[in-house]
Write a protein that binds this DNA or RNA. Structure first.
Lengths: 343, 343
DNA sequence: ATGAAAGCGCTAACAC
DNA sequence: GTGTTAGCGCTTTCAT
């Protein structure tokens, strides 16, 4: 029976007056933790009054008093990149379940992250989740010094000072390599990610290790300037220019793989007849491209969810002692890979 | 020379003491509007002290005092849907430029929107942007009654009570239809969007009108249950079951078009040889599917940016009197459309 | 079980 | 140009 939700200058005092009790009683009655201290009768009256007046506790006031804003911040490098929305979704779901709100910021330029964090500090967020950390990120230093509760997602902290939730990049690449080797490929190349980003080096290491397990070495490796289609195309082009084409190429991510498609097509090479390609992420629609991409699926939403859960645990005082949670990726075989042509 | 950004219990009082002035002087000195009232000398001293101590104004306190939180909320139905991230990006860019933060909430179930708004009201957001409004949305009523500054994006308010920023759905469909007619198609069908969503009806109207302009009528129309690939496939299947296949089908959105691809392929029909297909949105990767989709491109980022700008104008007191801004979409021709086969 | 009172950090009248 | 004062709405001792 919520009445007219008109503009609400109704304060706790109004409720107290209406209920004929003191404001502190109202405060207690409306607090889940303290309501046990109040008699059933008063509880009823207060709740009725609050309801009737359309009372909405002013969070700013409560934040000022308690120092807790029920607010967290998230920094993502590019919300337009399909891996981040599911992560955000996971974070937001966890936050909403606790009555928290999430400030989402799109930090295009890494140097702009610092001022954003400054503003978040001013807003007194209860914690932040960083999806932006590069290797040796000064931001890690900053949040640690500032005493800001922080969790990393999708990118771990190599210095081990911050808890993180990541996917197992090494395993991911091993799945791809094993699949290719199983198909009979010998000359397996790698389109590597930027080596200043944790996932970039992790995946490169994974490829090398997996190949080594088969007593093989990367046929050729080219580093991409970024996780983008353009960078992938450029890198593939460069690889092709370097000599004989590989039989298969393991890409650091889907976008790069699609860029490789572009370059390969331009060079008159067919996927998978002439060359097999694998991606990483299983972005939406990669099952519809031509040919459907064999790739690695990540539990993106869970990555977000878990990171938020860790953050809230820390906010609630459970020192996580910088643990890193590693989630398992899985191989999704489609049409971009097949056995190499007989020679 | 910002010193150790340690946990900051440093208040305006500490700065005042360090600078040897009164707190109100500090407040003024640090406020862009009021700093002109302060002597250069004092200004210098205060700024130096603030800097040195690592002072960060407590926004919660300021919000309590002024009633302004420098915070806005955004409700999106599905952040995972590729149209929304660019919109969010536009909103966030506009907000960041003003020192505002954005609460992003993913409202899966429309019935959950109300409690989310209640919480936003409690947080005292300065305004909200709704990307979720359905037709005759009770939410519109709610925010109007609550006196919450609101702008709609991507979906207009038919009752005209709220300002909105939308893309021209009628024009979009006209572009698609004209293209198809120009190619020589006669039997043009429509896979319509949910008719309880403004864009759904807008686009349907657009198709009908455009066809009428050519003295034609829709060859067949099926409404999709949602803007999804599955719904598109189901609708296309249903259409096919209804009798002779159309020569071309105009889809309400890209996902639906891709669903149509699925159903068509299953039915042994080739795109575009047997049937032409158009989409709407120009999602990432639809240029890489097989065949590359002819579609309508929207200025998504600008949609977001403009809506935020309108919201801030209203927050700053410029009554926008519920104006609706309509942005122009554009046709992107790819490989899913061609002239009908000679019979 | 409830009331009284203080104060979180800031801003805005209002003095001077 | 700067200081004084009051108070935003809430929570939390401390009494009773």
């Amino acid at each position: 029976m919520s009445t007219s939700p008109t503009s609400s200058p109704v304060t706790i005092r109004d409720v107290a007056r209406a209920a004929g009790v003191h404001v502190s009683t109202v405060s207690r009655a409306l607090s889940p933790e303290k309501r046990s201290l109040i008699s059933d009768e008063v509880l009823r009256v207060v709740e009725e009054a609050a309801q009737r007046l359309g009372y909405r506790p002013n969070r700013a006031a409560s934040a000022l008093r308690t120092g807790r804003t029920h607010t967290i911040g998230v920094l993502v490098p590019d919300i337009t990149n399909a891996v981040f929305p599911p992560i955000l979704q996971g974070i937001e779901a966890s936050a909403a379940a606790r009555g928290y709100f999430v400030f989402v910021t799109n930090v295009v330029d890494p140097t702009l992250a610092r001022p954003v964090l400054e503003r978040m500090l001013a807003q007194r967020v209860d914690g932040v989740i960083l999806a932006t950390a590069t290797r040796d990120d000064p931001l890690v230093d900053f949040v640690v010094k500032a005493g800001l509760t922080t969790v990393l997602v999708n990118r771990a902290d190599e210095t081990g000072r911050l808890p993180a939730v990541v996917s197992d990049d090494r395993l991911a690449m091993k799945l791809a390599v094993d699949h290719l080797v199983g198909l009979g490929h010998k000359r397996i190349a790698h389109l590597a990610g930027p080596q200043n980003i944790p996932t970039g080096v992790g995946r490169s290491l994974g490829v090398e290790q997996a190949l080594r397990d088969h007593r093989m070495k990367p046929f050729r490796v080219v580093e991409c300037a970024s996780y983008s289609r353009e960078a992938g195309a450029a890198a593939m082009k460069q690889m092709l220019a370097a000599g004989a084409a590989p039989q298969a190429v393991v890409c650091c991510n889907d976008l790069v793989a699609l860029g490789a498609y572009d370059a390969l097509r331009e060079a008159g090479l067919r996927v998978p007849q002439d060359i097999s390609v694998t991606g990483h992420n299983d972005m939406p629609l990669v099952d519809m491209v031509d040919p459907p991409l064999t790739t690695i699926r990540l539990p993106h939403r869970e990555l977000g969810w878990r990171s938020a859960e860790m953050l809230f645990a820390e906010i609630d005082g459970a020192a996580m002692s910088a643990s890193t949670v590693v989630l398992r990726p899985e191989l999704v075989v489609r049409k971009s890979t097949r056995a190499p042509a007989a020679r």
